[in-house]
Amino acid sequence: MNLARALGKRLLALALVLFLVTLFTAALISMTPGDPVDLLVPLAESDNPEIQQTVQEQKDAVREDLGLDEPFPVRYAHWLGDFVQGDFGKYYRTNATDPVGDKIKSALPVSLQLMVYAQILALVVAIPLGVVTAYRAGSRFDRATNASAFGLLSIPNFVLGLFLAYYVGVFLGWLPNEGYRHPSDGLVEHFRYMALPTITLAAAQIAVYMRLLRSDMVQTLQEDFIQMARSKGISDRRVLWRHALRPSSITLLTVSGLNVGTLIGGALVVERIFSLPGVGRAIFDAINGRQYVALQSFVAVLAILFVMVNFTVDVLYTVIDPRIRHARATS
C-alpha cells in the first residue's frame, strides 16, 4: 500500500538524520582545542616523577577508554554501539568514575516532566483563548489579549523565571522557587515545586500558540463550509469547536511539535534558575566540570528525543486530516 511506502520513506529519512546527528555529537569531543584528555584529567602540576607517572597512566587509561587513538569511523562505531546498549560513558573525576547513564536515568524524567507539563499548560490555556479571540476578532477583548500575548512572548524566559522565582517564590512565598520533589513523595508537593518552572516555560508558548491558532481560525471561519455549518442551525459553540477548530489546528500541531526544540532549550535555562535536577542542570555541571564525554551523551540524548518527537508529529499529521492521508496514500 502506498501509505506504507510513504511511511517507509520517512523512516529512512529518520535513520539518516539520526546517523548524522549522532555523528556530530560523537565528534564533539575531538573538536576541543588541545588534547581532550588533558581536559578530562586535571593536570596535577608536580615535579614528583611518581605523581607524574600516575597522571600519565591515568591519561593513557582514559585515552584508551575513549578510543582516542583510533580512527574516527572506528571510534564512532564503538561509541554508537555503546550508546545503543545504554552505556553513555563515564564521568572522569579526580577520585572516581561514575557512569553517565545513572545521571541520565535520574535527570531525564525531571526534564521530561517539565517539558510535558509546560506543553500541556500552554495548550490548555492557548486553545480556548485562540478560539474565543478568533470568534470575537476585532473586539476589545481580542485586541487586549493580542497585545498581552505579544508582550508576553517578548519577555525572555530567564527574565520571567527570575522574576517569578523572586517575587512569587521568595517575596510572596506562595510557591517554592527552587528544588524538586519526586511524584512518589507526594503529588501535591511535586506539582507545587514544578509550578513556577512550568509557568515560566509555558508562558512564551502560550502567546505563540494562541496567536497561531487565532490566525488560522480567523481564516477558517471565513470559509464556505463554516457558513454551511451555521446555516444548519447548530449552535455557534458547536460550529467553533467541532467544525472550525480541527482544520485550524494543523499548524498548531506542527509548531507544537517543532517547538519541542525551544522547550528543550528553555528547560535548560529554567532548570538552572529553579535548581531542578534535570538534564539542563546536568549539562551545566558537565560544562563546568569539563566533562565532555558526559556532555556528548546528554546532547545526543536530547537530539534523539527531538528527532523522535518530530517524526511522531509528522505521522500524526495523517491522522488529523484525512485529506493528507488520502494524498499521501495516492502519491
Binding site: T25, L28, L268
Partner: peptide, 13 residues
C-alpha cells in the same frame, strides 16, 4: 540535520 538538534543545545555544545 542541523535543525534536528535543539538550537540552544547546539549552540551550547
Amino acid at each position: 540535520v542541523l535543525l534536528s538538534i535543539p538550537a540552544l543545545v547546539l549552540a551550547l555544545s
